[in-house]
Write a protein that binds this DNA or RNA. Structure first.
Lengths: 159, 159
DNA sequence: AGAGTTCCGGACAAGAGTTGTCCGAGTTGC
DNA sequence: GCAACTCGGACAACTCTTGTCCGGAACTCT
């Protein structure tokens, strides 16, 4: 089981956009993190489809957050990029083979399915409890306010 | 993000082996669940490597649980088949690019890394809280004792 | 209005990981 | 000792992710 690597990029972008007061282009975000611009664009488009960021075209266009960072959870970003589908999908094994359970017994999800769903929900709840603003607060609390200021200055500097 | 489909098979096998008092061959387990025998063998080998089941070769060989089902958690099976690697792997994006953080600032995992690790741990804790015996108890509580008895009888019947 | 940016969506190739199959090594029972 | 049966790991086929690229549309500045 592996999560899409683009999730990490998207989270870092969401964190960086916290310090921006202008739209930031995808190319600039890619340059900042030293990652592929073409591929990062794909993640940003996914975030745009999910309504987390707003994209403006044109000369001074780019991406900006649609909501205050305290209203964007880590789960929002993960689901936007990686998809909302749970990792475990039940194929109803109990309904196959010579000992197949009766169809009416399969109306409720099986015990295995429930255990996996509960774990998935615990995972989501944990990600839902952390917002982008929390991440920013942790970073400034540990490494000082200079980090976000540096990002803002770099965004405002000429390319 | 998608989990290996073999995890579901392995869990069903672990559940079925609860009702067995003899070693059961991989072919018989595959026939019972109507899945590919060759591929199911791979999952059983992984469980054997993890020490969850013991394999005996020869004429009446097969697989059997090494511990009582109350000592085998769902997480044990998931990690045996799907691997113990967490889904999220941090590539230390903050240490790259023109705004790279200083190396000494990267001694501790970044905030994003911590959030993902905490969620992963919550997921694992949920899976760890359910044992194979719990699954069997749920099934008998909902569909009666006949289910496990049927499995046992089918195992004891001649192929 | 025109030129220069920028995003958007899709098509496309490369790579990794999963899914599935096969045959040899070893063991057991007769 | 023999034969039958089993597991175990090595071997392809396939799907999905990763990554790239290009044309079209929209916006800003001159």
């Amino acid at each position: 089981m592996k999560m899409s690597g683009g999730v990490e990029w998207a989270l870092h972008c969401a964190f960086a956009l916290t310090a921006a007061d202008h739209p930031v282009s995808a190319a600039r975000l890619a340059e900042m993190h030293d990652v592929s611009a073409s591929y990062l664009a794909k993640q940003l488009q996914a975030m745009s489809r999910a309504g987390l960021v707003r994209s403006t075209q044109g000369n001074l266009g780019g991406y900006e957050l649609t909501r205050p960072p305290s209203r964007i959870t880590v789960l929002d970003v993960v689901e936007a990029v990686d998809g909302p589908t749970p990792a475990f999908l039940c194929t109803d094994v109990r309904a196959r083979g010579p000992l197949a359970a009766s169809p009416e017994a399969c109306r409720t999800p099986c015990a295995i399915h429930r255990a996996m769903t509960a774990a998935d929900e615990a995972w989501r709840a944990s990600l839902r409890s952390v917002t982008i603003a929390d991440l920013a607060a942790q970073v400034t609390g540990e490494h000082g306010r200079g980090v976000l200021d540096g990002v803002r200055n770099w965004f405002n500097a000429a390319p």
